[in-house]
């Protein structure tokens, strides 16, 4: 039982459990934020699992999730826009903590893998994940009534 899988289990239990509880109960605005956070939490745990199992090919799973997770949240932000106008879900504290956790995991894994193309791939995944998380929460909290394009 190496430390990586243990870290992934802890992250999965805490983050996954909280996100699931958030998405299953409470007002619609909190559910959407919880769905956004579920991506931001489970992608690092996939990275940790890839490191724990020693298979670099599993990193593609985290890459795909870092790409499509925020797209899923954008779908909800876009198609639930009229129902979300009431109470704006602005859980910026949670968003930044989740992004912080993701960044920490990516940086630790980069330190372990050492300077190589694999490390650049991890950095790309980290960048996609955090930018996607921030943009999705921006879209959730009123992004879709924003400035009209020039």
């Amino acid at each position: 039982m190496n430390g990586w899988i243990l870290a992934a289990t802890v992250l999965l239990t805490a983050g996954g459990g909280a996100a699931l509880w958030g998405v299953a109960t409470g007002p619609l605005s909190r559910r959407v934020v919880a769905q956004n956070l579920s991506t931001t939490v489970i992608c690092p745990s996939l990275l940790l699992l890839a490191q724990g199992y020693g298979r670099t090919s599993y990193v593609d799973l985290a890459l795909l999730l870092a790409l499509l997770g925020p797209v899923g949240t954008l779908v909800f932000a876009r198609l639930l826009a009229d129902e979300l106008t009431g109470d704006r879900p602005a859980a910026w504290g949670l968003t930044w903590t989740a992004a912080g956790v993701g960044a920490a995991v990516v940086l630790v894994l980069c330190a372990v893998t050492g300077p190589s193309r694999a490390m650049v791939k991890l950095l790309v995944i980290g960048a996609l994940l955090i930018s996607g998380n921030v943009v999705a929460s921006r879209a959730l909290s009123g992004g879709l009534r924003g400035v009209r394009d020039g």
């Binding site: 619609l28 919880a34 579920s38 996939l46 699992l49 799973l61 999730l65 997770g69 909800f76």
Partner: peptide, 18 residues
Amino acid sequence: RQALVLAVLGLLLGVVFT
């Protein structure tokens, strides 16, 4: 709301398969 929960379910299933 079910679509939201299904999205998280899909995520967790992805983790189970991994």
